[in-house]
Each structure stands twice: as structure tokens, then as C-alpha cells.
Design a protein around this nucleic acid. Structure first.
Lengths: 189, 189
DNA sequence: GTCTATAATAGGATAGAC
DNA sequence: GTCTATCCTATTATAGAC
């Protein structure tokens, strides 16, 4: 059998994600996606009849599932809220790396709006914030303050990616996230 | 004279900027730009032979000039560094409004990279940071700390726009900027 | 499921009249 | 300086063979 192993749907989604994270939704063409996956355009349409929009929504869906799984692991973990928060942070850092690649959700928030995408983006940010808020609440941070700190943290994640790319300096992302973590946890009992 | 008043180049640039800030560089087509300016595509090419790329670079150039002018006003002002910083912040808030429109520079940082654009983006972010660093230094903040706070502030500006759009809540931008200003100035003599 | 081929359209850009 | 008309390419999308 000279036939190359069929790529799994998961593998296809991973490669699509990689492409979207490199250039953003608007600047990534079907030709780019075909090259990234090793499939021809027509084959991509077999997996995703809705085209590019369905592809990116599927990627977002996968990201959200993996995120939910990480949150569940964090939630079921024993240990202090701070320790669990650290684990959650580590998951995020593993995902974002040096901050040179885009956040698919964040990118969609500033791309041409497509039907069904706005809701997914809002859900993504909300889920992210909710994890932070819950941990902070457990640490004794008042509700409103916890919400603001979570907003601030997620905004800083997003902004750090923008600056890392804009100033073309991969050190920036980690520096900013490190500081952000300190701020997030400042003055908690 | 039934002839409508010719739009000035400044007016054209303003309208181009408005279009780019609404949808971002990649998602804004020449047709959009023609409609936004009231000119036909061919007329746009008369002003900007380099096409879309030249248009956005001209917009960036204009933004930078206005920014430099605001910085100069701040710099020549009498009063404490904090007071001058407040004035500078007010200029930024006037420009960004509710944070629903994009920052042209920030958007270019996460768009398909074009020749000559990366440098302009980096210059823009650097100029922005430099103002903040100078004021903080005057207030007695050590060099490295001042740089980090400036980075943090600009990143939060950018991230606030992302979250304002992603969560579709125009209150978020002002809330985050207000907090950011506090953090920027915390523990200065 | 994957491909080749092709359609249909949108996007960027130019020529040349007025 | 502005326009109409046009060109060319890229892009999205589909048909249908294998």
C-alpha cells in the first residue's frame, strides 16, 4: 500500500488551527488551508461543507473543548486555589508559547464578523474569565474586583500577543504574563 | 457651480482611517474604501498609486503625526508629570472612544505582513511607550520598571479593544483603561 | 474520501476619455 | 482629478470522475 495514512479529523483541525494562528482568519485563504492540511480544496469542502467559516468554527470548537477539559482537571484537582490557578496558567502558557502566534478567539474578535462567530467568541472569553473569577473568589477577592481582574488578565493576554508581534520581540509575551499573574494575585489572603 | 467641493486629502485620509478602523486592513476592500471616501477606485489610485498598502501607510503616517503633535503639546506643557500624563491619556481616550473601533497600528500588527508596514508598526508602539516611560521616569520610577509599565499599558489598550469587541460591551474599554491608569501610577512618589 | 477541472465572483490594479 | 470600462489574478465554491 503506497497510500499515505489518512490524516485524522483531529490532525486536520490541528493544521487548520496552526494556519489560522499564523495569519489570522481574513488573511488565510483556502489555498493556504489546503497547503497546511495537505488536502486539496475540494477535500476540505468534504470535511467542512460550510467552507472557511465552518473550518474556523470547528477549530474554535476544538479549542473550547480542550479548554473545558483543562478547566475540569483544574477544578477536580486537590490543593489551594492558587496552586490550581498556576496549573491553569501553565496550560495557557503551553498553548501560547512565545505569543508569536495568534489566539484564534482573539483574532476573530477583530476580524470581519461572520454569522455565528460573534457568539462563539463571546463564549470563549467568558469561559476564560469564569475560571479566573472562580479561583479569585475562592481566594477571598470580592466579586466585582474578581471580575475586573479577570477582564484585565484576559485583555493583557490578548494585548501581549499584539505587542509581541508589533515589536517583533518574543520576550515580551512572557514578561507581561509574569507581571499579570502577580497583579492577579496581589493582596489576596 | 454644481461641482461638489473637492474633498481634501486630509478628509480622504480621515475616511480611509475610519474604514480601516471599522473592519481592519485585511477585511477592508478597495470597494469599501471607494465607498467610504466617495471616490471611485481609479481616483483612489490617483492619490495612492501604491494601492491599499500605500493608503494604510498614509493613514498610519497621519496618525503618527497627530500623535507626535499631542506628545509635543504634553511635553511643552507646564505642570507635574502626572498632570501631563493625564492630558496625554485624554488624547488617547478621545481617539479610542469606547474602544469599539480598532487601533490601526494594533490591527496591522496582527494582519498579513506587507513590506514597510512592520517598521511603521514597531515605531508606533515605541513612540507610544516612550511617552509613558519619560513621564514615569520623571516621577521617579526606575528605568526597567518604567519600561515594563509602559509595555503593560499599551498591551492593555490593545487587549481592551479586543475584549470590547469580543464581548460586545462598550463599557469594558473605559473600565480597563481606568484601572490601567491606576496601575501605571501606583507607588510613585 | 480524494482528486482534477472548472465555474463564479470578488479583489486589486490600470488605460484612457473627459 | 475624476470617471467608465476593463484586465488579471486570487478566491471561494462546486461538479463529477475515480
Amino acid at each position: 500500500m503506497a497510500r499515505p495514512a489518512t490524516v485524522s479529523r483531529e490532525e486536520v483541525l490541528d493544521r487548520l488551527q496552526k494556519a489560522f494562528r499564523a495569519c489570522g482568519y481574513d488573511a488565510t485563504s483556502l489555498a493556504d488551508l489546503a497547503e497546511a492540511t495537505g488536502l486539496k480544496k475540494a477535500s476540505l469542502y468534504h470535511y467542512f461543507p460550510g467552507g472557511k467559516r465552518e473550518m474556523v468554527l470547528a477549530v474554535v470548537d476544538k479549542v473550547m473543548q480542550e479548554f473545558a477539559a483543562a478547566v475540569a482537571r483544574e477544578h477536580e484537582m486537590s490543593g489551594s486555589a492558587e496552586k490550581r490557578l498556576d496549573l491553569f496558567f501553565q496550560v495557557l502558557l503551553d498553548y501560547f508559547g512565545t505569543g508569536e502566534e495568534l489566539c484564534v478567539i482573539g483574532n476573530l474578535a477583530v476580524s470581519s464578523e461572520l454569522p455565528g462567530v460573534a457568539g462563539a467568541v463571546a463564549s470563549g472569553f467568558s469561559a476564560w474569565m469564569n475560571v479566573l473569577v472562580r479561583c479569585l473568589r475562592e481566594m477571598g477577592v470580592p466579586k466585582e474586583e474578581a471580575r475586573m481582574r479577570a477582564l484585565e488578565a484576559v485583555a493583557l493576554f490578548q494585548g501581549s500577543i499584539v505587542l509581541t508581534r508589533g515589536l517583533n520581540d518574543p520576550r515580551i509575551f512572557r514578561q507581561l504574563i509574569k507581571r499579570m499573574r502577580v497583579r492577579l494575585l496581589s493582596d489576596v489572603s
